[in-house]
Structures are given as C-alpha cells and as structure tokens.
Amino acid sequence: MPSLKDLKNRIASVKNTRKITKAMQMVAAAKLRRAQEAAEAARPYAERMNAVMAGLASSVGGQEGAPRLLSGTGSDRVHLLVVMTSERGLCGGFNSTIVRLAKARAAELLAQGKTVRILTVGKKGREQLKRDYSTHFVGHVDLSEVRKMGYSVAQGIARDILARFDAGEFDVATLFFNRFQSVISQVPTAQQIIPARFEGAATTALYDYEPGEEAILADLLPRGVATQVFSALLENGASEQGARMSAMDNATRNAGDMINKLTIQYNRSRQAAITKELIEIISGAEAL
C-alpha cells in the first residue's frame, strides 16, 4: 500500500503528463490544419499533371522507343522501396503501419527471388527496418532539418531516385506512405512511380503538342516523379499530424482516468488514516 505522500506525488506527475499530451495534441491540431491546406493547395497541379501525362502516355506508350521511365527497363528484377516515415515518434501507429506494409512487400519480393533495395525517408522507418533489412539499405533522406515541406525537398528526393534509375540500380520503384483520409484514419499506401502508371481515363481532347509528344513526355516524366514524391510527402505530413493528434487525445484521456483512480485511492487512504487515528483516541479514552 503506497503511502499518502507517494500517492500525492504520483497524482502530480500524471497531471504533468496530461498537460504535456494535451499541449502536443493542440500543437498537432494546428499543424494538421496547415498540412491539410498545403496538401489541398498542391492538388490542382498534381491532378493536371497526371491528366496530361496519362493522355500522352496512352498515345506514346505502346510505341517503340518510349521513354524508359514509362515503359520500364524490360525486367522487374530489382525493386526499390522508398519508405517514407516521420522524423518523430509519439504518433500512434503511423510509422508502424507504413513499415509493416513495406516489410510485407519486401518479404514477398524476396520470396520471389527478386532483389530488394530500400531508400528510407525519415528516421523512424529506418529504425524499425534496421533489424531485418539493414543489408538492403541504399540510402537515407534526413528530413529533421526541414522546417517547411517545400517542393524543393521533393525535387531533391526525386533527383536521387532518378539518378539511381539512370545508373541502372533498380527496375521498379515504389513509394510507401500514409494517405490521409481523416484525423482518425490514415491508409498505408504503396504507389508505383517507376515505371509510371496512370489511373483513370486519359483526356479525350486532341492536342497539338509542341515540341513533339515524345519530347514533352520525356520532359514531363521526371517532373511527374517529383510531383508524386511531393504529394506523398504532403499526404504523409498531414497523416502524421492526424495520427499524433488522435494518439495524444487518447493519452490525455487515459491520464484523466488515471488521475481519477489515483484520487479515489488517495481519498480512501486518507479516510482510513483518519478513522484509524479516531479509533486509537477513542479506545485510549475508554481504557482510562
């Protein structure tokens, strides 16, 4: 049975924890709003880009000499997994869900006898993958210095990926990130970026292309990689804050429950001590 003083200290410490988690929740809520706005602001560009590229890809795609970024290298032996996670923890299952998806894919590919290479973006995923897959690591992008997720960050990552592709280091590249659906739901997603794949119907309008279709496509595909990386980063950013917000909300609630329980226990022990003292006094008086 803890003493009254112990209980008091314990309650004070849990109250402090609650203050911290509450503050983190509010910070995450503010950041989430900004991250969501950024993700929304980036959408028109990505959508147009995709629509135009899908149109071009459908007309150029089948032909001889289509760009390698579209048609692939002709094999799918070496896979590059780009695992995008956060730099910080305390965000519930955010990082684990991404890593779990990536691990499952890596295991599946290895079972098929393919080569797996892993590029990690963000510290947390690297830590979790290190134990099983550290031999597959080819690089790491550190985002801890990045204050605002700008397009230039995505361009840097895309340039790295493209340089590796040009050097023949891999055949297929896949991005792993959490797609933001709502504060309580983030969907771990695997998105293949090289060779490029397009969803949805191509634009039907017939365009004049200047210069030629293939030249434009060759120019756009690298930009498309950067755009996809950028929207993945933004989705991930919003998801991270959403996950952190709900995790911290839970933590705050748990701390509250714990404080209630401890307070009851504290009051009971206090009452017990008072009763005990009274009994002692009364039985002392009776003995006289």
Binding site: L56, A205, L206, Y207, D208, Y209, P211, A215, I216, L220
Partner: peptide, 8 residues
Amino acid sequence: GHVPTITT
C-alpha cells in the same frame, strides 16, 4: 478559340 495545345 486557340487550338488545343500542350507545350513545354
């Protein structure tokens, strides 16, 4: 009324 065009 410009002809539909895509240019870099």
